[in-house]
């Protein structure tokens, strides 16, 4: 049941002010749908608004959303309760399948750090195997392939994520509040103007914003189509060396770094990955994979970290 058309209550993406890092990460995730994003930051920093607004701009719909109070049957799928009460029985797909079949292949979890542990386990199982096999609640479901990118938002005041779940997010963006008065005024103006226009039966202003969103979506779609043609040969070695420098466990870190850099190159209409793409992607792809993040508490990406990436790339140039 979808009520009161919540799609239309979302601020158009063109009215989002700032949030450049989160916008970049979401663009990467769109261009390479296998790369998920976690937005972490203090209260009132428009993390979820930006993600929903991006989804509506890019996919023309809100993301499939897993609320923190969801029950197992709705996550995994199960018999339709309404049908059962009528004496019928058929299977109702769960959110994991819905996300896998949606255009964005995105499963969005707001307040992901408040999610119950047993739901986290289900998501980890499905995300790691790429297969959903349900045999419970009178359901004997053959293996269904599920492929989705995890996108989440959270306020670290309420605790961190288990390292296993954190690792499932391809990129992590720390959203910081911007106290610049000009920025704040622009945010205020956009939100209050949206309130005003939203209350009107028709709004040329909102039509114009949505037209801008459509142009952005077209541009991103072109980038997605271009992604496969971006050359990765040099960057392959560079990403491996950066991963070695940070002593990352496993290979997910360098793979995500490479995929993010390639997507970024596509967004920027480049046919080859260059240093700046890796430098930008590294802060999102590695911040939660360093040894310092093993406790689940996220340590901010520092200038020193960025300097280490720079140094590795410089040494490669010289070599």
């Amino acid at each position: 049941m979808t009520i009161a058309d919540p799609d239309h209550s979302i601020l158009p993406f063109s009215l989002i002010v700032g949030q450049q890092e989160l916008q970049t990460a979401l663009q990467i995730s769109y261009v390479d749908p296998g790369v998920g994003v976690l937005a972490t930051g203090g209260r009132g920093t428009a993390k979820s608004t930006t993600i929903r607004s991006f989804s509506r701009m890019a996919y023309s719909s809100l993301p499939v959303t897993l609320p923190i109070g969801a029950t197992e049957d709705r996550v995994l799928g199960g018999l339709s309760v309404e049908a059962l009460l009528r004496g019928e029985h058929y299977r109702q797909p769960g959110l994991l399948e819905q996300a896998s079949e949606s255009e964005g292949r995105m499963l969005y979890i707001d307040e992901v750090n408040l999610l119950d542990d047993h739901l986290v386990n289900i998501i980890l199982d499905a995300a790691s195997t790429g297969v959903l096999e349900v045999q419970h609640d009178h359901v004997d479901q053959p293996s269904v392939p599920v492929k989705f990118a995890l996108v989440g938002s959270m306020n670290p005041d309420e605790g961190g994520l288990r390292p296993q779940l954190l690792d499932r997010f391809g990129l992590v963006v720390t959203v910081k509040p911007d106290n610049d008065a000009t920025y704040r005024r622009q945010v205020l103006e956009n939100v209050l103007r949206f309130d005003e226009e939203f209350a009107k039966p028709t709004s040329p202003y909102l039509d114009e914003q949505r037209a801008m969103d459509e142009r952005t979506a077209r541009r991103l779609k072109e980038a997605r189509d271009r992604r496969a043609t971006v050359r990765v040969d040099w960057a392959l070695h560079a990403c491996a060396r950066v991963a070695a420098e940070f002593e990352l466990a496993g290979h997910r870190g360098e793979i995500m770094l490479l995929r993010a850099a390639r997507a970024l190159a596509a967004v920027q209409d480049s046919d080859v990955i260059n240093e700046s793409h890796i430098l930008t992607a590294a802060q999102f792809a590695l911040v939660h994979r360093r040894h310092s993040a093993e406790s689940g508490t996220l340590v901010a990406w520092s200038d020193d970290d960025q300097g280490r990436v720079h140094q590795v790339l410089d040494e490669m140039d010289k070599g």
């Binding site: 919540p6 609320p67 969801a70 018999l79 307040e111 408040l114």
Partner: peptide, 24 residues
């Protein structure tokens, strides 16, 4: 938790016991 996820939010979602809803 309901306050945190719905008060002032632009959308909300319920997915429990076979019931599914998304609303503003």
């Amino acid at each position: 938790r309901a306050v945190v996820t719905t008060a002032g939010a632009d959308t909300a979602s319920s997915q429990r016991h076979g019931f599914s809803a998304v609303w503003q």
